[in-house]
Write a protein that binds this DNA or RNA. Structure first.
Lengths: 205, 205
DNA sequence: TTTTGATAATTTTGTTTAAATAGTCAGTTT
DNA sequence: AAACTGACTATTTAAACAAAATTATCAAAA
């Protein structure tokens, strides 16, 4: 039974990988189940044997990406030297994540208003992890006396993440674009680093 | 000739006011030229005597609102005691402006991707004014020695405005709501003040 | 248990027509 | 002449429908 299960997992992985490539390259709506099956020389029906429907397949890929992302975050954030380094790690890794998977998130832009609950759960999970790791970082720094004592680190991190998010959505709003285009991402990144700089100085007593 | 011109201006104003009320109440696309004309007991054709088309009428209202907004900003910002007060003024006034005219901006959400150039000019003008007034505030504070010298105040203000914007749009994004509700407004406001606090401390040498 | 071809169900796309609304203009009123 | 209108045309939106594409199912085969 374990053998069979392993085999199944391997195939599942292959499907996830093929689906990811398609979604990344063409976006959600311009990817058909036939094409994914075709890439693997499988019948479309088999996809439905492994995944209940197209959106669940997409979500499964998303979950995989999220898990990797969270993993990266944990690994790097456990080894920071100071607060700024920790925050910069977070910004950098998020930046890379978004740049690398830009087209994959097409789904988000199209369904902007009503994303499936499962997607929201993943977003929440990521947010939670970020909060947890960064507020831990703040606590440690406060204990070391590098910054002044903060009675509610979560609140500070939440605020910072919001502010960083603002740099993302708003940095381009005077440029006739509502959603950041790929070519703006670097500018956004620079701005974010500057914000981190000022913000951290603001925390330092 | 001036008499005639004055009369025309008065009527123009009345049309702008009636149009504003309709746009504010029903949004752009659910307001018809017939209705606006009806509210004033005028023929629709007369609207076209005063304004070339519907969108120009909307833009004229928008321009009027923008002028008022900018006026408010200038008045208040010229009398600030310290940097924080100036920033808080800006936050408060912008907040009021958006809350009051919330439905009017329907037009923006619908035409999100391709707003007319004239609208963008108005947005740019507002942004310009905000930048100008707030960066002047920074310069004055820097001269007074209250904060450390800043070589590019505009950049700092731009960043701060983005960050503040983020607190607005993002404070609710984990709650599956796109636009803030009444019960979130206080939370947003508090968050923004906290951000201002940290940000200004970050500027203080 | 895994896989597929054939088929059903659903969604998207394109087309036509009718209705609503924007916009024009010759002519009337002030 | 400037301000205004009713009746008209032009455009845009909405609804209804058919055709095409795509998702999803299932009985049967490997």
């Amino acid at each position: 039974m374990n053998l069979a299960s392993d085999q199944q997992d391997i195939k599942r992985e292959k499907i996830l990988e093929a689906a990811y490539q398609r979604f990344l390259h063409y976006g959600y709506s311009k990817t058909t189940m036939n094409e994914i099956a075709g890439d693997l020389s499988l019948s479309k029906a088999l996809l439905y044997y492994y995944f209940p429907d197209k959106s669940q397949l997409y979500i499964a890929v998303m979950r995989k990406l999220a898990t990797e992302y969270i993993g990266n975050l944990r690994d790097k954030l456990s080894t920071f030297e100071n607060l700024k380094e920790a925050f910069v790690f977070q910004v950098d890794i998020q930046h890379d994540f978004i740049v690398k998977n830009y087209n994959f998130f097409d789904f988000f832009r199209v369904n902007e208003q009503n994303l499936p609950d499962t997607i929201w759960e993943i977003i929440t999970e990521i947010h939670h992890t970020e909060m947890q790791l960064l507020s831990a970082a703040i606590r440690i720094e406060a204990d070391k006396g590098h910054i002044k004592p903060v009675d509610n680190p979560e609140q500070i991190v939440d605020l910072l993440l919001d502010a960083l998010h603002g740099v993302r959505v708003s940095a381009v709003s005077h440029k006739k674009v509502m959603f950041p285009k790929k070519e703006h991402l670097d500018e956004i990144h620079t701005k974010r680093l500057l914000l981190l700089d000022i913000f951290i100085k603001g925390l330092t007593a």
